[in-house]
Design a binder for these strands. Sequence first.
DNA 1: AAGTGGTCTAGACCACTAA
DNA 2: TAGTGGTCTAGACCACTTA
Lengths: 266, 266
Amino acid sequence: MSYQGFTFVYIECADMAHLPEGASAHLRASPPEPSRKRLNTWQAIRAEVLRRIRAGEWPPGALIPTEQHLSVEMGCARATVNRALRELADSGIIQRRRKVGTRVAATPLRRTTLRLPAIRTEIEGMGAAYSYQLTECEARLPTPEAMRALQVDAQDPLLLVMSRHMADGQPHCSEAIWLNPRALATPDAVVFAVEPPQEWLARTLAVMQTSFSILAEPASGTCALNLGVEPGTPVLTIERVNSMDALPVSFARQFYPPKHRLIFDA
Amino acid sequence: MSYQGFTFVYIECADMAHLPEGASAHLRASPPEPSRKRLNTWQAIRAEVLRRIRAGEWPPGALIPTEQHLSVEMGCARATVNRALRELADSGIIQRRRKVGTRVAATPLRRTTLRLPAIRTEIEGMGAAYSYQLTECEARLPTPEAMRALQVDAQDPLLLVMSRHMADGQPHCSEAIWLNPRALATPDAVVFAVEPPQEWLARTLAVMQTSFSILAEPASGTCALNLGVEPGTPVLTIERVNSMDALPVSFARQFYPPKHRLIFDA
DNA sequence: AAGTGGTCTAGACCACTAA
DNA sequence: TAGTGGTCTAGACCACTTA
């Protein structure tokens, strides 16, 4: 993880070509050992397959040997080959279909993993001191956006909590959360003077389903004020809708200033 | 996948609570069948664990039973439990440590999967017609950004290719790619009049390692022109650095207009 | 009908780490 | 040192798809 200026890493990429971890098992009843070196960790097999693809031995669109074939060639169990190829398929490097076989992806549809930590974690992970300020907390009728996100009517009152998160005293992120009191026993507003709403939510509701959106938009007045930038400045917005059993309970919008990056490092 | 106005889905979330696929194996030597129902697919076990977490039986921070314990309780092999718990750990729902055990994550560090298709795929996936226009293609000295990304000196000439991608004739994405001729046999500029540079790259170099950044910034002049918006309009920028064997070969910046969203649907 | 990937099993050894 | 997760194996059955 790095921290240069405002930029920082908070995302990790699909794991590729890592080191073996639980490597080096099973030389037990080792057979007479053919001339070819034995590959018997799934990481080693993944690396070897990747190597052949990159080397052009298996060009884009080509079929590669079957699991059965590879397990014999590499001297390991088919399950091990399966694990390796499954990882590669999850990364979008290869495509697998029953009966047909495994093909090197012609179109590079890359899948990477996005880590979305709590903001406190994000800031402390940079080595900065985290602090939180409540800006506003009141009952409000939903905006059209909030109506859609939380699936409520225009007359349903919601709780709007606005706040900002600071890193070493500097504004890092401005946040607006709509809570649906009908779906969720909302606490006294006083709670949010101290505890960030997202943390209260996580503590209260355990595991939720969350859907995310990422977009760029101009900073609104409140957001600009919270971040200390001019209104209209581009901000990176992350929207999160938390649901319990398909019932949306909260709609959060987090705004980051222009220098902020989401970095997927490989 | 959905398409409402400008918004569209091109991302998928970590798979959770899906249906079994290769379900229903192994009632072979089924033992006398205890009163409790037998769960013997990893999807079923993952769903049951998730249910218990959501129901509060295993609150955030709590240790859950060991793989051994669960395999006995659910009547399946430990490997099956391992697969289920590994998936949950990959999603950030639980945290696993040897000797210690498995804990329900107290901090909701969610990991979701980001699909980054080629732009052609993205547009055609919306049901729109894809077209491509080359705007500019010339040798240039690198900007400081390009220098950093491609690890070259200020005197190294690079090839800069600027273009835009259209959906049903409307500007969808503006793109600027820097190619390093020292790392890559760059083609005649005429190639890029017809073929988008990313597709040429994918076709030519097979599998590369790619690192991504996402940020919001004001549209520059060329970008604004390509997208048909005012300069300074917030754009969502996706940066990609493609590398071969740790050697960066291309630095691409893709700019999307404000209405564009990356959607991670759950 | 046959071939390929997807999964489960039962057992084993290893890696890591708290006690 | 002991307990827990991480992995490999050899074999098996099943699901899906093309022929």
